[in-house]
Amino acid sequence: MIAELFVNALISGLLLGGFYAAISIGLSISFGLLDTVNIAHPTFLVLGAFLAYILNSEAGMDPLLAGVLMTPLFFLLGLFIYSVYYQFFEKTSAEALRGLAFFFGILFITEVVMIMAFGVDHRMVSAPYANGSLGGSILGMELSVPYRMLSVFVVASIMTLGLHLFFSRTFFGRASRAVHQDMLALSLMGVDPIRVKRIAFAIALATCGVGGALMIIMIPIEPAVGRLYIGNVFAIVVLGGLGSISGTLIAAVLLGVAESVVSTFLGPSWSPAVSFGILLGVLALKPSGMFGVGDTR
C-alpha cells in the first residue's frame, strides 16, 4: 500500500519535474547565463497561461497551439524589457539590487494588470489530451498517470532538450555562454555582446509562451500564482548550477519528486514549503559568501 503510494508519487514527481524544467529553463538562461535576476519570470508564465486560456475559451484554440503562437510576442516583450534594463541598470552599472527592484515592480504590475483583466478566479483549459489517465497494474501495484501530466511532460521535454541543444551546439548559444565569462573575447570576435544578451534574454522570455500553456494545462491558474513558483524556479536554477541547462533539468526532476512525495504523504498544502525550504537549503550551502569566492551579487 505504502509502496504503491510511493511509486505513484515517484512517477508523478518525475512528470512534474519535466514541467518544472520547462518553466525554469527561461530563468536558467536569463539569470544563469546573463546575470539578469528576472524575478518576474514566473509571473510572465502566468501571463502566458492566461493568454492561452483566453484563446482557448474564446476562440476554441488548442492551448499548446496558442502557446506556440504567443512565443514571438513574448520574444518581442523580452527584447523590450532587456533594452530598458540595459539602458537604466546594466549600462550605468547600477547596483544589482536596483535591477532586482525593477523586476520586482514589473512582477507586481503584471500581476495587477492580470487581476484587472481576468479577475481573481481560478481558470483552466480544456484539451483532448488533458482528460483521463493511463492506468495499469505492475507487480501487484495499481499505478495511474493522468494524460494531462503525461502530455505536459512530453512537450516540456521536447522544449527543454531543444533549448539545451540550441545553447550548446549553435554559434549563438556558445556566444551567449561566453557573454557570461568573457565579454572581451566576444568583442574581439566581432560579436556585439549586448545584442547577444538582448536576444538571449528575449529567448528566455519567449519560453513563457509554451511554458504558460503547459502551466494552465497542468494546474488551474489565478494571477498571483506566479509568486509560488518563484521558489521552485529559483531553487531549480541555483541547485542545477547557474547557467547549466542540463543541471536545470536534473534539479527540476529532483524537486518534482520531492514535492510529489511530500504532497502525497503530508498533504498538498505543505508543498510550497518543500521548494522554498530546498531553496533556502541550497542557498545556505552554496559554497560562497564573504570569506569564500567573491560571488556576492
Partner: peptide, 27 residues
C-alpha cells in the same frame, strides 16, 4: 543568512523564508 548570502541571493532567501513561514501558519 548574511554570512553566506549577499545581494540578490539574500533578497531571494528572505522571500523564500516568508513563504515557508506562511505555509507553516497555513497548516
Amino acid at each position: 543568512f548574511t554570512l553566506r548570502l549577499k545581494g540578490v541571493y539574500f533578497a531571494i532567501a528572505t522571500l523564500a523564508l516568508a513563504i515557508v513561514v506562511e505555509t507553516i501558519v497555513n497548516n
